[in-house]
Design a protein around this nucleic acid. Structure first.
Lengths: 193, 193
DNA sequence: GACATATTAGAATATACATTCTAATAAAAG
DNA sequence: CTTTTATTAGAATGTATATTCTAATATGTC
């Protein structure tokens, strides 16, 4: 019952994602999102409680897109493959990469998240922490602060840094970043201090 | 002639810097800046053409604060000392570090810069590029794309990545980051590929 | 002491958006 | 073919700020 929908939730999220990746999160006005797909602004609010909720959906989608593959690689035990996931993923998903790597989460979602979404976001970060701990334990025999720090640095922070400069310029990361990431990984993750 | 000033330019820049470091650039409203030092909003505009100009002054000051020491260290020839400058500077200058490392330049200054300030900003980035090129040439015998990439990665990008996580949490980077930076520097900057 | 003016004071205005509201539509159900 | 209601449509409203404007105040100069 009721008339057929011209638009669906995904379209609005797609539009918001596209605008955020192209012109930054500040350009994601409700009017811009609606305009992107020829919808009236009312339809945005028919589907999303607020701009924050829409942007939170964008963030959750992007974060999951990165992390699902990352974690499954890490679980297979190859740390270096996980480290190299960042440049590979960034090449395949330029728009998503810009959003995840260029902007802070609070820049996308300024206010508070609805409880249910906060839970989803927390789940994502907990899953990441757990995956890293497990890998560190497997690699070093234990997962104390020192081991976690090294692991995070080698497979998250350094790949991020290696790629950021290119993402900023709207370019795909060149092959050379794999070299830098690999050398760093080897230097940091040796067994002995 | 004219009455004495209660406030001076520096005070407004200080106030803006403090607010930006503490609550992010979005919290730097003209009213907040004025309120911080008990000045009327009119006095802000008496001294600065616009919010963007005020924020540009903040950025220029912070960028110069980081870069002056960084470049003088680099000129002395010790690349590893330059790489370690980031965590050291961040510990000594928490507020400035938050501004430089946590926020993009366009987040501070959204619109366009006045010509004169654009020139100053360009000077800063050119001086950095030149310093890096010179160091790369001195270290590797030449400064082609490959050499520059490695150098930038080892002395800028990696130190930034090593420190970022702590800056985000409002903590000072622990000693361990020096370890990570040093190991990475050594791995990346060897002569042979 | 009267004048000129740099500066303080802060009220008034303008703008950009998020959000809300009211109405029009179209499809399904009976 | 009438009723119900999900959805489109987009105009109206409210809010937060940047910016502008008008006035009041001091201080050096004549």
């Amino acid at each position: 019952m009721g008339r057929n929908a011209h638009f669906d939730n995904e379209q609005f999220i797609d539009a918001a994602l596209k605008i955020a990746a192209g012109q930054g999160p500040a350009a994601v006005t409700i009017a811009a999102v609606a305009g992107e797909i020829g919808a009236p602004v009312g339809s945005v609010y028919h589907r999303f409680l607020s701009r924050d909720v829409l942007m939170a959906e964008v963030w959750l989608r992007v974060a999951a897109s990165f992390q699902d593959e990352f974690l499954s690689t890490l679980e297979k035990g190859e740390g270096i493959e996980a480290a190299l996931h960042t440049p590979r993923w960034a090449r395949q998903h330029s728009a998503e990469a810009r959003i995840l790597l260029l902007y802070r989460r609070e820049e996308l979602v300024a206010g508070s998240w609805p409880e249910e979404m906060k839970e989803r976001a927390l789940g994502i970060s907990r899953r990441l922490d757990a995956g890293i701990s497990k890998f560190a334990a497997r690699t070093f025999g234990k997962a104390g602060r020192e081991e976690i720090n090294r692991t995070v640095f080698a497979i998250i922070d350094v790949p991020y840094a290696a790629v950021l400069r290119y993402i900023r310029q709207g370019k795909k990361p060149p092959r050379a970043v794999e070299d830098n990431i690999t050398k760093t990984y080897n230097a940091i993750m040796r067994r002995m201090k």
